[in-house]
Design a protein around this nucleic acid. Structure first.
Length: 620
DNA sequence: GCCGTTTTCGGCCCGACTGTTTTCAGTCG
């Protein structure tokens, strides 16, 4: 980072021309003497994501109708802001601080109130009459924006993706002014891509693909100066839409051309002198931006996003009379300040460098200016892993093999937490088998002690929370264990009040130390349980129960927003692999990235602690 | 519609690439 007398940037003389009922909070119900009557009298309330979706639909509809672009921007920003909120909108309203949320002003706060009270909004209903839902769907097709969607609807009567497909097949688009053969071909390809690749790519898969592309690009161009992935992958989002790659080279054109010729590339969408978009054989889209080395910092900042972060950043630059782009800071006199690294980009606006995982316009600018950004946890801070399986249940390796793999990765302790016998498919352990397992673990620990190793294996279990909230093992069996991990595996579709109460009962059990993968979501396949998370997080604080970030690439559960809210409330977090074989221990990397997105420091994560501190916490 | 080191008006992020054009609108990230 540039400090002291050296300017952060260099002056150059370059010139460049569903409606989900939330009902009542489960905690309130538990304390209510007559809960069933209470529920019936409460109005249905929209969840934050429902209201965010409504505002985004309003923005899309108004854009198709060609209304004022800044009003559209305001609705879209409000939708984004709401989607990012850590607590239910109703709480903000109750505390009368809705308008303190950036992007929510007087008008939108009133509309939120109407939505919370009545479940619908006159403006939204009116727009639905003018722009059918199927026309909004057209915007999901690559290369179809609001103008094209409006013309397809107005001039050809197309009001759904199916009708668009039929029109393309019938050659009807060619009759439209401005729609040539290439446009028709692109729309056909866009529809195909939408149909077969609607799913996003898991972070773990994207990381492997990105690292492969980077290696291939380096091999093809040995003299390329720098190359990195950027975008949502660098921000560690749990799933990734497109891969974004950035390269630095004095001569940009040859890098773009080499990229489009890589064997991984199935189809080139576009390619110019500075950037290209391709579709890989895996179906994933990859975008490459190539910049001169002097612009690496500004380009990396630009290409990492998020869009919301970038917009906010550029607004802050404008306040100082600087126009920021991937090329650098344009001054009023037209001169460009370039930045060769990201720290210089942020330093130019008197901001500390913001870690990519925090770049979502969720308060990181205020913290960067105040010098209060958290010192985020790193993988190297991890000392233990408190959730994994062995051949005693559905794991593929013995306890000794798991222990050795963990020790080889630099951990000081693990907990073996095989499934309780309740899950028929996994075999599992009952009270008797737990006693046998304890003897095996004692032997392994004795061997490590004899060798002078600090490494230790803790004895635990992953006990099922039964549909009624009982645990699948008796308290007496749990009491003798070092660590008890409790989790939901069945009946995940119970109504909110029921499944929340079920989890609250497990949290309150004094033997339970950790709640594993709290929501049970499987990314791109299954939404999590409909939990009242605020009640869950508060109960975890009250009972000193640790909440897990499960590092499984298709779980990453808790997610980052809940991690951040949990930490705000003072809950303890653990990051566990849930490994079923030794290689899965490497998944901790993804859990740590998720913790970083949740603003977690090492000290807030209990398995960065030395064993003694962890033991005393668990004993409380 | 939001917002304020340009605070109740007048701004609102910025540039690359494409297609169908002859100078730019639309889309994307």
């Amino acid at each position: 980072m540039a400090t002291g007398t050296s300017p952060p940037c260099y002056h150059t003389l370059q010139h460049y021309s569903s409606i989900a009922p939330v009902q009542t909070r489960a905690l309130q119900q538990l304390s209510n003497r007559n809960p069933s009557k209470r529920i019936e009298t409460l109005p249905m309330t929209l969840a934050n994501h429902d209201i965010a979706r409504i505002f985004r639909e309003i923005a899309d509809s108004m854009e198709i109708l060609g209304e004022d672009r800044f009003r559209i921007l305001a609705y879209r920003r409000a939708g984004d802001a709401i989607a990012n909120l850590p607590r239910p909108l109703a709480e903000y309203r109750a505390q009368q601080n809705l308008e303190e949320v950036p992007g929510i002003g007087k008008t939108i706060a009133e509309k939120i109130g109407v939505l919370l009270d009545t479940g619908s909004l006159p403006l939204h209903e009116r727009l639905k009459g003018q722009v059918p839902t199927g026309v909004l769907d057209l915007l999901r097709v690559p290369d179809i924006g609001p103008r094209s969607a409006k013309r397809l609807h107005d001039e050809l009567g197309i009001a759904s993706l199916d009708e668009l497909r039929a029109a393309v097949e019938a050659g009807a688009l060619r009759g439209l002014k401005g729609f040539g053969a290439k446009t028709e071909q692109r729309i056909r390809q866009g529809l195909d891509a939408l149909a077969q690749h609607e799913q996003r790519t898991l972070m773990s898969t994207a990381l492997v693909a990105a690292e492969g592309l980077i290696a291939a690009l380096r091999a093809a161009l040995p003299d390329m100066e720098r190359v990195s992935y950027a975008g949502s992958l660098r921000r560690a989002r749990p799933t990734i839409g497109d891969l974004d790659l950035l390269a630095a080279a004095a001569d940009t054109g040859p890098v773009v051309r080499a990229f489009t010729r890589l064997s991984e590339v199935a189809r080139v969408i576009s390619a110019g002198e500075a950037k290209a978009s391709v579709v890989l054989h895996s179906g994933v889209q990859a975008d490459l931006l190539v910049v001169p080395p002097a612009q690496w910092g500004s380009a990396l900042q630009h290409f990492t996003g998020s869009q919301a972060h970038n917009i906010r950043f550029r607004e802050l630059a404008l306040e100082r009379g600087l126009s920021f782009s991937e090329r650098g800071f344009r001054q009023a006199d037209g001169n460009l300040l370039t930045c060769a690294d990201e720290a210089a980009v942020y330093a130019t606006l008197d901001l500390a460098w913001i870690p990519p995982e925090l770049r979502e316009d969720r308060g990181e600018f205020v913290a960067a200016r105040a010098g209060t950004l958290p010192h985020l946890i790193d993988l190297a801070d991890m000392r233990g892993d408190l959730h994994m399986h062995s051949t005693w249940s559905d794991g593929r390796a013995t306890i000794a093999q798991m222990a050795e793999a963990a020790r080889a990765r630099g951990l000081d302790y693990i907990a073996i937490t095989d499934h309780s016998a309740y899950l028929g498919v996994t075999g599992g352990v009952d009270a008797e088998r737990l006693r046998e397992q304890a003897a095996e673990i004692a032997q392994i620990n004795a061997a490590y002690a004899d060798q002078g190793e600090v490494f230790r294996v803790l004895h635990g279990v992953e006990v099922d929370i039964l549909p009624d909230g009982e645990l699948a093992l008796p308290d007496a069996a749990l009491a003798v264990l070092d660590i008890v991990v409790a989790s939901l595996h069945v009946s995940l579709r119970q109504p909110q009040e029921q499944i929340t109460a079920r989890l609250l009962r497990a949290i309150a059990n004094p033997h339970v130390d950790i709640i594993a993968h709290p929501t049970g979501r499987i990314l791109e396949r299954r939404a999590g349980a409909d939990l009242d998370m605020e009640a869950i997080l508060q109960a975890a604080v009250a009972h000193n129960t640790l909440l897990e970030i499960n590092s499984g690439p298709d779980r990453l559960d808790l997610d980052a927003l809940h991690v951040r809210r949990a930490l705000e409330l003072g809950a303890g977090i653990v990051i566990n692999s849930d490994a079923h074989n030794p290689d899965d221990l490497d998944w901790l990397r993804y859990g740590v990235l998720t913790a970083r997105r949740g603003w977690a420091t090492a000290d807030q994560v209990a398995n960065t602690w030395p064993p003694a501190r962890l033991r005393s916490h668990v004993a409380q």
